[in-house]
Write a protein that binds this DNA or RNA. Structure first.
Length: 255
DNA sequence: ATGGCCACCGAGGGTGGA
């Protein structure tokens, strides 16, 4: 079983890349972020034709998340219950016996800004909700664009901004791990300077000036079955790419 | 050597991303 996450930065623009990637990687579930399209514009037919079901919640211009899956989505939840938010950043669904959550964490803009305060509030609400979810769903995957580089090795050494690497953001990430979640990527040996996002400017991809901010957190019962976790840089090399790359975790099919 | 982007809306730059 393969579960992946990918911030596509516009589903409309990236649909050809997405369809190619589904055909070549054949994930069982793929969490998407930054759809930037309203629900009536969601390309459901093309995705169905590729062999996938979809649970999604979108809006005009910004945000928007989806879960594509071979099996149907059950018990679909959009947004964080009890957290009033016009921004579409969460969709959760049960796929087989695994609870899958596609999350687009707020960017935060700059430490101390209004958007940063929103980011921390959102993280607090997410953490409280996940604590409940984990009591209902022992097998859970939190996948998405976290907009947090959890450790220094997850940011290029020359990254100068505070945002994505600040202490409060990293503490919030640790609080998620404190729920009993595990960073699937760090369960395995990885190359140094492994990143999932590179700025469009400054030839950042070529220079590998990036951040690892796209993550797959998996609950403890899933850890023994995890076989492999990697970043697929191939789509970042295509014409007109997303600035993020897919991250994939593979589980053994037994259990 | 430095640093040059991209997608959105909408009709020209302004906003947001990270």
């Amino acid at each position: 079983m393969k579960i992946a996450t990918w911030n596509v930065n516009s589903l409309k623009v990236r649909l050809p890349h997405l369809l190619d990637w589904l055909a070549s990687e054949q994930p069982d579930a793929l969490c998407l972020q930054e759809l930037k399209c309203e629900d009536q514009a969601f390309p459901l037919e093309a995705i169905n034709a590729a062999g996938y079901q979809a649970a999604f919640t979108g809006q005009k211009t910004y945000n928007g998340v989806a879960i594509l899956s071979r099996l149907p989505s059950e018990a679909v939840q959009k947004n964080i219950p009890g957290f009033k938010d016009a921004q579409r950043r969460i969709v959760a669904a049960t796929i087989g016996d695994v609870r899958v959550i596609s999350a687009y964490f707020p960017n935060g803009q700059a430490v101390g800004s209004e958007k940063f305060a929103y980011k921390l509030e959102w993280l607090k609400a997410l953490t409280a909700w996940l604590r409940e979810e984990l009591t209902q769903h022992p097998k859970l995957v939190l996948a998405g664009d976290f907009n947090i580089a959890p450790e220094n090795r997850d940011a290029h050494p020359d990254w100068k901004d505070e945002i994505h690497v600040s202490v409060p953001e990293r503490e919030a990430f640790q609080a998620l791990l404190g729920l009993g979640l595990h960073d699937a990527f760090r369960l395995f040996e990885q190359a140094e300077k492994s990143f999932s996002w590179w700025d469009y400017r400054m030839m950042a991809f070529r220079r590998n000036f990036g951040l690892r901010i796209d993550h797959l957190l998996i609950s403890a019962p899933l850890v023994p079955t995890a076989q492999r976790c990697w970043v697929d840089k191939a789509p970042r090399k295509l014409e007109r790419p997303s600035d993020h790359t897919p991250v994939i975790v593979e589980f053994s099919s037994t259990n």
